[in-house]
Simulated assay, not measured.
Amino acid sequence: MSLPSKVKIVEVSPRDGLQNEKEFVDTALKIELVNRLSAAGFVNIESASFVSPKWVPQMADGGDVMAGIIRRPDTLYSVLTPNLRGFEAALAAHADEVVIFGAASEAFSQKNINCSIAESIARFEPVAQAAKEAGVRLRGSISCALGCPYQGETPIESVVDVAQRMLALGCDEIDVADTIGTGTAKRVGQVMRAVTEVVDPARVSGHFHDTYGQSLANILAAMEAGISIFHSSVAGLGGCPYAKGATGNVATEDVLYMMQGLGIETGIDLEAVADTGLWISQHLNRKSSSRAGTALAARKAV
């Protein structure tokens, strides 16, 4: 299959990228991060999370972040909502899209939320119904779709089953997420082809972590399987607090550089994103995990 001429990049650093930070990131810094990303041209930014501060304290200021950002027309500002209380907070914060999530791994589901996959998805029925009634876009994320820290490789039929359940809930878009970054190109192709037999490829996205350095190859394999929506995080920020060994998301700068080289349109300013990656890394007192971002910064410094 030929590659797409255009892809949508969902920037996840304000939520998925920062949620694992041990030191609390100042609300003003989170707001500026979202604003910088908006200005760079992203059409979808995962901006906050309305989960219990007890479980993810870093995301306790979601309402303040959503209230403080400068909204760019035609950009979706998404938030994570695990339950009806979270959805109500998201609605009050004028979120454009709410995100629900469930694992494709039975072991991961049992270990982390003490229930089966089917039970975990069923818990989102009130949220999905409320979203539809309120006219809010609904996205479903399938975690551990390519591997699990407890059971190893995830069966493809499990991923397809969760995708069908999320479709039945009314999800407008479904993320296939390699939460621990163990996926490889061949397996990604197999999983994506299986999922797109039951879900329109235009509604499926790839969410890859770069634990084993396979993310760019996995994105290419996903594009060859008909996928044209991908998640990434500026400077490669991120990691799942409940998945041991999971490093950051694939770096947005690296994805944009690859897309540029392939002649695939993104509508995003790579230079602005690279500058943002350098800026947020400095504020977090670390080096950027983006190879392209680091190289672009070095070139600019010469």
Results as ranks from 00 to 15, higher is better:
residue 212 Y to T: 10
residue 101 F to D: 03
residue 49 S to D: 11
residue 88 E to G: 01
residue 74 D to H: 15
residue 158 S to N: 14
residue 1 M to T: 13
residue 49 S to R: 14
residue 40 A to H: 10
residue 266 T to N: 07
residue 228 S to F: 13
residue 66 M to L: 15
residue 203 R to C: 11
residue 181 G to C: 06
residue 294 T to Y: 11
residue 302 V to D: 10
residue 131 A to G: 04
residue 286 R to M: 05
residue 197 E to K: 15
residue 8 K to Q: 14
residue 10 V to T: 14
residue 112 N to S: 03
residue 193 R to P: 01
residue 147 G to F: 05
residue 120 S to A: 05
residue 285 N to H: 15
residue 112 N to L: 01
residue 261 G to I: 09
residue 97 E to V: 12
residue 212 Y to D: 03
residue 27 T to Q: 08
residue 267 G to S: 10
residue 218 N to S: 02
residue 18 L to I: 12
residue 251 A to M: 05
residue 174 I to L: 01
residue 101 F to A: 11
residue 78 S to M: 15
residue 127 V to M: 02
residue 96 D to M: 08
residue 229 I to S: 13
residue 111 K to H: 11
residue 167 L to C: 05
residue 145 A to E: 00
residue 51 V to A: 14
residue 227 I to R: 00
residue 206 G to Q: 03
residue 252 T to I: 11
residue 80 L to W: 12
residue 181 G to I: 09
residue 157 E to M: 02
residue 261 G to A: 06
residue 267 G to I: 11
residue 215 S to H: 07
residue 176 V to P: 00
residue 246 A to H: 01
residue 160 V to L: 01
residue 279 W to Y: 06
residue 74 D to W: 11
residue 36 R to Q: 06
residue 127 V to Y: 09
residue 58 Q to D: 12
residue 244 K to V: 07
residue 221 A to Q: 02
residue 291 R to N: 05
residue 31 I to C: 10
residue 137 R to E: 06
residue 172 D to F: 07
residue 241 P to Y: 07
residue 187 R to S: 01
residue 46 E to W: 13
residue 252 T to W: 11
residue 188 V to G: 00
residue 193 R to K: 15
